[in-house]
C-alpha cells in the first residue's frame, strides 16, 4: 500500500488555468520522495490537496490507503508549511503542547515529547518566550518541531529549509535522514536540489501543473550523457562533431567526445564512422539533478 497516492489529481482555481493537471503520483512507504518544479508548477497545490486544505476539481488522493478527507489519517502525518504561520500569542512550549493535545498524545507523555522535540531543534532556551518574539528561522524550527511531535509515519514538508541559515539547514537534513533511516516516509518539495539529491530516493518534476518526469535519480540521469573516448581525430571530424552537437575535449593521450544529449550520441557515432575513427571506450556520464531539472523544465527532456 503506497503511503501517498494520487489519481488524475487536478485543480483549477476559478477561471484561471489549471494549477494541477491529471497528476498521478505514488510514494511508497519508507521512501523519501522529492517534488521539484519552478514556481507555480503545482507543488504546493499538490500538498494542499493531500492535506485536504483544498478540494481537487477532479481526481482523488489517498494517504495510507484512506481518502485525504478523513481527518483520522492526519494523525499519521507531520506537516511543515512553506511559510510557517503559528499562533503568536502562545509561548513556544505551550504552543507545542496545544498541538500535542490536538494530536491526541496522552497527557502523561505530552510534556516529555514536547521537551524532546524542543531539544532536538535547539529551542529549549526560547521555549518560554512568546512566538511573536521569534525570528523567522526560529519559527521555522518551531514549525518543524510541531510536525515531528507525534513521530509521524509520513512527513510532508513544503520548502522546509528555504528560510534557514546553512547551519540550521544541515540540522534539518540530519533529522530528515534520521527519519528516513527509521523507515519514515518523506514527501518534500524544495528548490535546493542538492539537498533533494542527497535525501530523496525518487523525485517528480512538475511543470505548469503537470508531471513532466518522475523516477529514481538513476532512472532520471543514467545513460543519458556519454563520453566517447577515441585515439585521434582529424580537424574536419572535430568540426563535424561540434556541428552535430557534441563537445570535443583533446587531452594529452586521448580525445573525448561528450554527448550531452541522447539524440547527440547517434549523430556523433555516425560522424566518427564516416571518418573511420574507432571508439576505444564509452563512459556513461551521469548528469546532476540540477541538469535533469533544468532540462525538464526548459525543454521537457533530460540531458
Amino acid at each position: 500500500m503506497p503511503a501517498v497516492e494520487t489519481r488524475r489529481l487536478s485543480k483549477r482555481y476559478g477561471s484561471s488555468a489549471e494549477a494541477l493537471r491529471d497528476l498521478d503520483l505514488e510514494v511508497h512507504e519508507g521512501e523519501a520522495f522529492g517534488l521539484l518544479g519552478p514556481n507555480g508548477a503545482g507543488k504546493t497545490t499538490t500538498i494542499h490537496c493531500l492535506l485536504d486544505f483544498i478540494r481537487p476539481t477532479r481526481g482523488c488522493a489517498a494517504i495510507f490507503g484512506r481518502p485525504v478527507t478523513d481527518p483520522a489519517v492526519r494523525a499519521r502525518i507531520g506537516y511543515l508549511p512553506e511559510s510557517v504561520a503559528l499562533h503568536d500569542y502562545y509561548r513556544g512550549g505551550a504552543l507545542l503542547e496545544f498541538y500535542a493535545g490536538l494530536l491526541g498524545l496522552p497527557s502523561a507523555s505530552r510534556q516529555r515529547r514536547v521537551a524532546e522535540v524542543l531539544e532536538l531543534l535547539d529551542l529549549q532556551e526560547v521555549a518560554g518566550e512568546r512566538v511573536s518574539h521569534y525570528s523567522k528561522g526560529m519559527r521555522q524550527r518551531l514549525g518543524f518541531a510541531q510536525a515531528l511531535l507525534h513521530d509521524p509515519d509520513l512527513l510532508i514538508l513544503d520548502e522546509p529549509t528555504s528560510s534557514l541559515d546553512p547551519l540550521a539547514r544541515r540540522q534539518f537534513s540530519d533529522i530528515l535522514r534520521d527519519c528516513k533511516r527509521r523507515g519514515k516516509t518523506i514527501l518534500i518539495s524544495s528548490h535546493i536540489l542538492s539537498e533533494l539529491e542527497r535525501l530523496c530516493d525518487r523525485v517528480a518534476i512538475l511543470k505548469d501543473g503537470a508531471l513532466v518526469r518522475s523516477g529514481t535519480l538513476q532512472e532520471l540521469s543514467v545513460n543519458r550523457a556519454v563520453k566517447l573516448h577515441v585515439a585521434q581525430l582529424p580537424a574536419s571530424a572535430i568540426e563535424a562533431l561540434v556541428a552535430a552537437g557534441a563537445e570535443v575535449t583533446i587531452g594529452s593521450g586521448s580525445t573525448a567526445v561528450h554527448c550531452t544529449d541522447e539524440r547527440v550520441r547517434p549523430r556523433a557515432e555516425e560522424v566518427l564512422a564516416r571518418y573511420g575513427v574507432a571508439v576505444e571506450r564509452v563512459e556513461a556520464e551521469r548528469s546532476s539533478l540540477e541538469d535533469v531539472f533544468l532540462a525538464s523544465v526548459n525543454g521537457g527532456d533530460a540531458a
Binding site: 486544505f53 481527518p71 499562533h87 490536538l102 514549525g143
Partner: peptide
C-alpha cells in the same frame, strides 16, 4: 488569512 489554520488542520481535527 494568516495561514495558522493549516498547522491546526494538519492534525486529526475535522
Amino acid at each position: 488569512g494568516s495561514g495558522t489554520i493549516r498547522a491546526t488542520l494538519s492534525k486529526p481535527v475535522s
